[in-house]
């Protein structure tokens, strides 16, 4: 080996090297339960970093319903509530209405937000609750072992659509985010991803925006994050990211869908 790594590090420290990136203290030391390469970890980290950077940990309550992130409270070093499947935004409504001064967010998967919780999601957005909704869309039910999601793509194979999703049998991929953007109760709606460093940076800005918006009392901020599920998709993590770019992004294009009008 050409370089003694330990010596190299010592040399750089001697030259004044300092930490420019480390784990936020808003994450616990418990290792994530997610599969290697899963986007949940990055999404968790970004939300926790934003809360730390804004200095609002003591005023933030998170809600994690059923899905892969159901035990998110094991990883988030903040106060949190686990909710029943699909009910996250109703729970968040109950928290926010009785604690309007707190920052409240829900963290939901596609099954939770766009299937079993559709009514709660639509009506929370329609009421314009002053909460942030983080919506993790990976087109499959990861926690229960790879079943079809409302957001599964046409032709996409899953354990409950083993021959691929067919629109005449299973319906079409549901882009609830776009529908929600139509509601006057949503203030900020954007679709992001976390598979490249550039996308991670943009996504973090969107998450920050979603929290900042809560100070304005102008309605729901919804950040959809399109992520991979390499286990559910039966791929390696790098393959999954490539597949996501080629297949998920055309169906769920990244970018802002509804941005606050500048006054």
């Amino acid at each position: 080996m050409a370089v003694d790594i330990e010596q190299y590090k010592k040399d750089l420290l001697a030259q004044g090297a300092e930490v420019v990136f480390s784990k936020t203290k808003n994450l616990t030391d418990t290792p994530f339960s997610y599969c290697g390469g899963c986007g949940h970890g990055v999404a968790h980290r970004l939300i926790m970093e934003v809360i730390e950077e804004m200095g609002i940990t003591a005023d933030t309550i998170g809600v994690a319903p059923v899905g892969c992130a159901v035990i998110a409270y094991e990883f988030w070093n903040i106060d949190a509530v686990q909710a029943a499947h699909g009910r996250a935004t109703a729970v968040a409504t109950g928290i926010k209405r009785t604690n309007p001064e707190k920052f409240v967010f829900s963290y939901q998967g596609d099954g939770d937000l766009a299937a079993i919780g559709t009514a709660e999601t639509v009506h929370t957005c329609n009421r314009g609750e002053n909460i942030a909704i983080f919506f993790i869309n990976n087109g499959i039910y990861g926690m229960t072992g790879g079943q079809m999601a409302p957001t599964s793509l046409i032709g996409m194979r899953s354990s409950t659509a083993p021959y691929g999703r067919q629109h005449d049998v299973h319906g079409y991929p549901l882009s609830l985010t776009n529908l929600l953007a139509e509601l006057p109760g949503t203030y900020y709606v954007t679709r992001q991803a976390v598979e490249t460093a550039a996308h991670v940076r943009t996504c973090k800005k969107a998450i920050r925006q979603a929290f900042e918006n809560q100070k304005l009392n102008k309605g729901v901020s919804l950040v959809e994050i399109v992520t991979n599920c390499n286990s559910g998709w039966k791929m390696t993590a790098p393959q999954a990211n490539k597949w996501m770019k080629e297949n998920m992004f055309p169906q769920y294009p990244l970018g802002d869908i509804k941005v606050p009008k500048t006054e």
């Binding site: 509530v81 729970v91 109950g94 604690n99």
Partner: peptide
């Protein structure tokens, strides 16, 4: 609320605090 389901979950949220 939009339903009894939502209502009881709003109670759950408020009670959590």
């Amino acid at each position: 609320a939009e339903s009894e389901v939502a209502a009881i979950n709003m109670v759950y949220g408020a009670a959590s605090t």
